[in-house]
Design a protein around this nucleic acid. Structure first.
Lengths: 214, 214
DNA sequence: ATCAAAATACTACTTACGGGTGATATACGA
DNA sequence: TCGTATATCACCCGTAAGTAGTATTTTGAT
């Protein structure tokens, strides 16, 4: 059998922490290497432990698990962080994900679900509850209605795409066998349709800022 | 017992289609209401069927399932679209999600996994394989660690951000009360640190680019 | 067959951008 | 205190980019 999956728990509620410890300890392939009740006490040990998986409570007294995430990633880049929470708060989910958590479970989950989440996250997956998964996926959709972009012809889209790669007019011309003047003409038309005056502005119309604002 | 989940299948491969039909038919709570081998034949029936769940092949002869997605959502807004594919192609996954698919499975999945995915998507979840889930989640964390960006000073970041807005050197200079020459100097240093030769290349280093391909 | 849209290409002009080189002042840490 | 990092500004130069006007050919739809 291969090496056990090392697990650390950071959870202030004694009862829940005990519950989690018990679950982890009961599994043959999991090894509990530490349990902490605060981010502060966990932080000093983390660099020595380098756990495979960390069960991290989002809302902790003192510094929250949410705040700690980016630092935790630095202290132990190889660890996967599985956030635990009682809430199903959309804002918090995205906060966690953008800060580097790769899984998200609710504390009320069954022991079976929790252990499978630990195995899943360690195996390269991203365990989430059904509703959370849907929210995450939902964030991707509805990125359309760009309207202006629809008015571009196939050729114009192609050229815009090449502009996005950072190619110069000359390089674009060579790539698709056009004269530089023709490229220039197409770009002029693109700018008119998108109502912009520069490459960067045009490119920004391609990008739903949604993802970059967080 | 509550109403059955109505399922439609769009898949050109006879064998796979038959396999899927068999799986759906074998379940008490699922009801197969149609199987099609092309988007075209499916499209005309969709408005009358209004299936709860559609198993949609991504790559189909003629019009692809990927292309069809936005229209399908219009024809039947209440349906959930579960994409089926042989590939695990990252580009395609994000394209599907952007276009409104809410689940993504590989055809080689076990019958149990397929039926649970159907139930999951109908119950409001977003079934995905472990690796796909990780990719989706990774998209949020801006899995960058691009280290290069970390080497920029506060001033350089500020200017890079303004470059991103599409401002010209002159406009940047006016905005933060510098001479154009100073702006130019900062930008030159940014380019050196990021190892690029143009604004667009620099900006592309800021972006997880996965989302914005055509 | 005809008209419109799209793709191609040119001339000419102005401004923006990027590279090279050098300089000064300030702040911070070894 | 000395050096390094940062921030500021300047001049020169050549190319890239954007604007304007025009024109030919190809393609698609009516």
């Amino acid at each position: 059998m291969s090496k056990k999956i090392s697990v650390a728990i950071v959870e202030d509620d004694k009862e829940i922490s005990g519950f989690l410890q018990q679950i982890v300890s009961s599994q043959e392939d999991l090894e509990l290497i530490g349990a902490f009740d605060s981010v502060e006490s966990f932080a000093v040990k983390l660099p020595d432990m380098l756990p495979d998986v960390v069960l991290l409570d989002i809302s902790l007294p003192g510094r929250s698990g949410l705040d700690f995430l980016p630092d935790a990633k630095k202290l132990s880049g190889s660890s996967q962080f599985l956030m635990c929470t009682v809430f199903d708060d959309e804002e918090k989910i995205f906060e966690c994900l953008k800060r580097g958590a790769t899984g998200y479970i609710v504390k009320s989950s069954s022991p079976e679900l929790i252990v499978s989440a630990i195995r899943d996250i360690h195996a390269g997956g991203s365990p989430m509850s059904a509703t959370i998964a849907r929210k995450v996926v939902g964030a991707f959709s509805g990125v359309k209605e760009s309207s202006e972009l629809d008015s571009l012809t196939a050729r114009e889209r192609e050229i815009l795409h090449l502009l996005d790669q950072g190619l110069r007019y000359k390089e674009i011309a060579e790539k698709i066998f056009l004269s530089v003047e023709t490229v220039r003409t197409h770009i002029r038309n693109i700018y008119i349709k998108l109502q912009v005056q520069s490459r960067t502005e045009a490119l920004n119309k391609l990008r739903p800022k949604k993802f970059f604002l967080f």
